[in-house]
């Protein structure tokens, strides 16, 4: 079931101004993984998901998607080091110790060469990405807390817009695929309805279908049931559960502990912008180790 890594995240950091929201997060997502991400609000879960499809540009770290760099910025650290070394070199030059000066100079030159090489490589990756960014996003479906259906388009148009516009399918193929997917979630009679006439649960299921219509390799869910009335949570979780069973690779930020326990094969606890704990669900919930996690679980499970 579980295959090769599809997304590899290494030392990912994200700052908004001075606010460090993600602090060196690393994670390897394998094909078929269903990863539940839990954690207190404001700890950076959404930001993490949004970095994966580059809706946010990370500050530092690397993201590999299907063995290809989509983001790499390690040179920031070398740059910082370089400024330190430059200062040291200046300080050494003030003194008259020839040895010290040449040592500082050598240190500085070495890091500078490293930096130049790395920065060059990263620039190339960035250039490549500019061309392939939209392609990258096509392979990653995203489902939002607020559904974000397009209110001026019918359900069918919501689903077929992207595949047709991006020439993944012809109009007929896209429509057929949309109807097929709608049938699966029992909403084919809503094909020509406008989103405003649907319930929250229906909207979110349509939003899932809209993302699936692009045939993505990975699906990201950002608290897909948090905006729903309690009686509608079940129908959305059911669709997600079925999707997981079909082998879809999924990362799900959620407060639904039942889903994390029953459907996910890995559970991650995030707090203060770092992954504090990761485990398979059984062990994660029965034997939490991190103090924050224990506290968090006792709050949400009570």
């Amino acid at each position: 079931m579980i295959g090769n890594p599809i997304i590899s995240v290494k030392d990912l950091s994200k700052k908004f101004g001075d606010l460090e929201v993600l602090k060196s997060v690393s994670l390897s997502v394998r094909k078929g993984d269903v990863i539940a991400v839990i954690g207190p609000s404001g700890c950076g879960k959404s930001t993490f998901l949004r970095c994966l499809n580059l809706l946010e540009t990370p500050t530092a770290g690397e993201i590999l998607f299907e063995d290809k760099y989509v983001f790499k910025n390690e040179s920031v650290y070398l740059k910082e080091r370089l400024t330190v070394l430059k200062k040291e070199l200046k300080a050494a030059k003030k003194g008259n110790d020839e040895n010290e000066i040449s040592l500082a100079q050598a240190n500085y030159d070495e890091v500078k060469t490293q930096y130049a090489a790395l920065a060059g490589e990263e620039k190339e990756i960035k250039k490549q990405l500019q061309k392939s960014l939209n392609l990258h996003r096509q392979k990653i479906g995203m489902v939002f807390q607020q559904f974000n259906l397009f209110p001026h388009l019918t359900v069918l148009q919501n689903i077929t817009l992207a595949p047709v516009k991006l020439k993944k399918m012809s109009e007929e193929e896209a429509t057929a695929k949309a109807i097929e997917l709608l049938k699966k979630i029992g909403l084919e009679d809503k094909a020509n309805a406008y989103p405003s006439t649907l319930s929250g649960g229906q909207k979110q299921r349509i939003a899932i279908v809209r993302a699936l219509a692009m045939n993505p390799d990975v699906m990201l869910f950002d608290e897909p049931t948090s905006a729903l009335d309690p009686e509608m949570v079940g129908e959305v979780l059911k669709v997600m559960t079925e999707l997981a069973k079909e082998g879809m690779t999924m990362i799900v930020v959620t407060h639904e502990m039942g889903f994390a326990k029953e459907v996910a094969n890995r559970v991650i606890f995030m707090s203060d912008g770092v992954i504090k704990e990761e485990n398979e669900p059984e062990e994660f919930f029965s034997n939490p180790k991190d103090e924050r996690l224990k506290e968090f679980l006792s709050k949400v499970l009570s």
Partner: peptide, 22 residues
Amino acid sequence: DAGQMEAGRSLGLSWISTFLRI
């Protein structure tokens, strides 16, 4: 809503397509 642009972009649509169509 800013979510409209994000939804379009997350589907892989370009900025200009999302802007004009959504």
